[in-house]
């Protein structure tokens, strides 16, 4: 039971980060290394707003959303200033451009908050664990799982049921054609990026109480998110949800039964999936670069 709960929680956190990453990748065709940087910015901004104190739940949730929104604003600015210029460059250069932004964000956090870890306690009422079937599960996990489920549902509705979602899908499919048909591609890009960075910030803000914050979390979390994106299939939100949950569960299962293998769960899962389906669980071959 505890294994299940931990796995689910970890998986949901990774999903929050990976969903934004896969969204940006699918629509804008940019592998965004700086995503991890925005995750970290979200965590630190939430810490600043909450002042590192125990807060009531409603305030906690409100401020976390505010922090994510603020992160999205930073993301939007960087899209205007930087990413606009990267679209024209070859893939590898744009990759390095986002890496540069990751370095700037991480370095900036070092300048502002220093290298010493800071911690953010859980909101009041969710501090302790509760007991289910003889196992102690941290209450805070419930909040993370609820947030993950809500995010998945909202994203699904947004993409499938709204005008914006249709435009986004069209741009992801063929940006040139979508542009000809009257879709404002630049605006869709900006909105997609802001949404993706909002999710990164939300992941960071929610993860805050579960980790000790150092600027370095920018580079550690991004790799898991990348793996999830690869496993789930480039650009597929459903795929990244499945992959993230599978990764979380596999990791917590291995951590209890075969601890030495736990850190490899990422690579085990990736190898297993890629051998059977090189394009990922729900991915299309188009983005894989299967042609020469």
């Amino acid at each position: 039971m505890i294994i299940l709960a931990t796995g689910l929680t970890d998986g949901m956190l990774i999903f929050l980060v990976a969903s934004g990453l896969t969204l940006v990748l699918g629509v804008m065709r940019v592998v965004n290394f700086s995503h991890g940087g925005f995750f970290m910015v979200g965590a630190y901004l939430a810490y600043e707003l909450l002042r590192g104190h125990v807060q009531p739940i409603w305030l906690f949730v409100l401020l976390i959303v505010v922090a994510s929104g603020a992160t999205a604003v930073v993301g939007l600015v960087s899209e205007r200033v930087l990413f606009r210029r990267l679209y024209r460059l070859p893939e590898v250069s744009s990759l390095l451009g986002t890496y540069a932004l990751l370095l700037i964000l991480e370095g900036g956090a070092q300048l502002i908050w220093g290298q010493n870890p800071v911690t953010q306690p859980e909101p009041s009422g969710l501090v302790h664990a509760f007991t289910v079937a003889g196992a102690e599960v941290p209450r805070y996990d419930i909040l993370i799982v609820v947030a993950g489920v809500l995010t998945a549902a909202v994203l699904q509705l947004l993409l499938k049921r709204t005008e914006f979602g249709r435009q986004l899908t069209a741009v992801a499919e063929d940006r040139y054609m979508a542009g000809l048909l009257g879709v404002n591609v630049n605006r869709v890009f900006a909105a997609t990026f802001a949404l993706g960075i909002f999710l990164a910030g939300l992941g960071g803000a929610l993860a805050g109480p579960t980790l000790s914050m150092v600027p370095d979390i920018a580079v550690t979390f991004i790799l898991q998110a990348f793996a999830v994106v690869i496993i789930g299939g480039f650009g597929s939100i459903g795929g990244s949800l499945i992959a993230a949950l599978a990764l979380g569960l596999l990791h917590s299962f291995l951590a209890s039964d075969a601890p030495s293998l736990a850190d490899f769960s990422l690579y085990i899962l990736m190898a297993a999936v890629l051998v059977v389906r090189p394009q990922g669980l729900l991915g299309s071959r188009q983005l894989l670069g299967e042609n020469l």
């Binding site: 930087l82 210029r85 460059l89 250069s93 390095l96 451009g97 890496y99 540069a100 932004l101 990751l102 370095l103 700037i104 964000l105 991480e106 370095g107 900036g108 070092q110 300048l111 220093g114 290298q115």
Partner: peptide, 17 residues
């Protein structure tokens, strides 16, 4: 400085662009 990453990031961007 304690944060060389920041400056390296700026440098990399400047070179790229």
């Amino acid at each position: 400085t304690t944060s060389y990453l920041f400056y390296i990031g700026i440098l990399l961007l400047a070179v790229l662009l």
